[in-house]
């Protein structure tokens, strides 16, 4: 059995999303990838919608340091403290949860627990979760992300690869989107063009 590698920890949480700080600087899950964490009595699934690397102190500006360096790695070598003063984190949109092996594609009763570990979902998990696509609603309706369409498209591209015929999956997902966005052709079009 493969020991799962935790990648981050929940540091801000609400019913609909959570913020997780990565253990490794600059090693954030990809936009649109699927992560899992724990809530009260359930596993919570989220989709990464924004990730960032920034100073751990609000208001402290990061200065460029590489003018004299020959490579980007040298910057960290010459300034070892940077790794401790910067952090990478990401926000994930909650898209469903599982309890006793059953997957529910709607918000869990309670938010992800603070400080709970976050794991990247395996392709098998993603495939299982995406057997049904009701959760796309949650993503479309989300107001938290500035570019929900990018996130949806990124996620679908990523999820499609876990299915035996990615093309088929994309069509199925596209149709699901089309139902929801039947009154917004332009948006539908823009998402589909990114698939």
């Amino acid at each position: 059995m493969v020991v799962e590698q935790k990648i981050a920890e929940v540091i801000e949480t609400s019913n609909s999303e959570f913020l997780a700080e990565c253990y490794d600087l600059d090693n954030v899950p990809a936009l649109g990838s699927m992560v899992r964490t724990k809530g009260k009595g359930c596993q919570i699934y989220g989709i990464v919608y924004v990730s960032a690397t920034h100073s751990i102190e609000p208001g402290r500006r990061i200065a460029a340091r590489g003018k004299a360096a020959t490579s980007e790695a040298d910057v960290f070598k010459a300034n070892p403290q940077l790794a401790k003063l910067l952090c990478s984190d990401f926000k994930a949109l909650v898209v469903g949860h599982s309890q006793d092996k059953a997957i529910y594609q709607y918000l869990p009763p309670s938010p992800a627990s603070i400080y709970s570990f976050v794991y990247a979902c395996s392709p098998v998990e993603v495939k299982q979760f995406t057997q049904s696509l009701n959760f796309l609603n949650l993503m479309i309706e989300s107001r938290s992300t500035v570019a929900p369409d990018e996130v949806i498209a990124a996620f679908l591209r990523y999820a499609s690869l876990t299915h035996p015929v990615p093309e088929e999956f994309l069509v199925k997902a596209g149709k699901e989107l089309a139902w929801t966005l039947s009154n917004d052709m332009r948006r539908l079009d823009s998402i589909l063009k990114r698939l």
Partner: peptide, 21 residues
């Protein structure tokens, strides 16, 4: 959708809009 037809030159879009939009 009739006024702004989706771009069905993209095969995926063509497949998606048929039966939905």
């Amino acid at each position: 959708a009739m006024v702004m037809p989706p771009d069905i030159s993209v095969p995926l879009i063509a497949k998606v809009v048929s039966g939905t939009t």
